[in-house]
Design a binder for these strands. Structure first.
Lengths: 115, 115
DNA sequence: ATCATACTGTAGCATCCACTTAAGTATTGT
DNA sequence: ACAATACTTAAGTGGATGCTACAGTATGAT
């Protein structure tokens, strides 16, 4: 690696690469939740969930705040959108390339070269 | 982890979390390239690049084939699109939630409760 | 035949990751 | 006051990752 991975996309994609963390995000995408609510369906200790939460927060994908003894977490769509955009941008390039091929083929056949 | 990460999204997002691998994909999104072409701009050995390429292929993001001594790599948009869709789906849920809040506020003010 | 090119494969190593256990702190309920 | 709840923090472990160095193999050029 380049040994300097503080770029947002590195962290975002890394955070999304874990099924447990994706499950947490799926839960949060339908509304805010406490840490224990996030933990309930997951086959791991609360401790592990808190660590995953840290990864998500560090990636900017989730924000949280504490009221009393309960920490409430919410999705941060902005970071999600940034990751989505990187992929969409690649797709755009790829499709452009595909269009160029089609344009070439169309032009080639209309100019009529069978030989 | 759940210790069973063969799911496609795990691999795709993991593959995308490395800047070197993203650089390779950025290069491939504008057209096919050989292994050494992919390696040229990257500050690492060819060996390392080949290993990154394996990760990308294992995630289904890239396909490659060899002609003579040259291996030519191409982007596989399908796996990219799948990753993009997972994010887009979460965003959709989040926006729906947001819309519900707006609808509630609109309804609340039109029914006229100042108390 | 010889040499360069374009990979390929393996071993080794330092670091990171996803957990767990265990011990703690701060709130809330009775 | 005492117990239960909701986290929080630290230490440790086994396995994965990202890299390099080095030793190949197969193909193309002269």
């Amino acid at each position: 690696m380049l040994q300097y991975d503080s770029q947002p996309l590195d962290k975002a994609f890394h955070a999304l690469s874990d099924p447990g963390r994706r499950a947490m995000i799926e839960r949060l995408s339908v509304g805010p939740a406490s840490v224990s609510e996030l933990a309930k369906p997951l086959p791991m200790t609360l401790s592990a969930v808190v660590q995953h939460l840290k990864v998500l927060e560090d990636a900017g994908l989730v924000k949280s705040g504490k009221v009393g003894r309960v920490r409430t977490c919410t999705l941060e769509i902005a970071a999600m959108a940034q990751a989505e955009r990187w992929i969409a941008d690649r797709k755009r390039f790829w499709e452009q390339q595909y269009d160029q091929l089609e344009a070439y083929l169309a032009q080639a056949s209309s100019t009529g070269e069978t030989e």
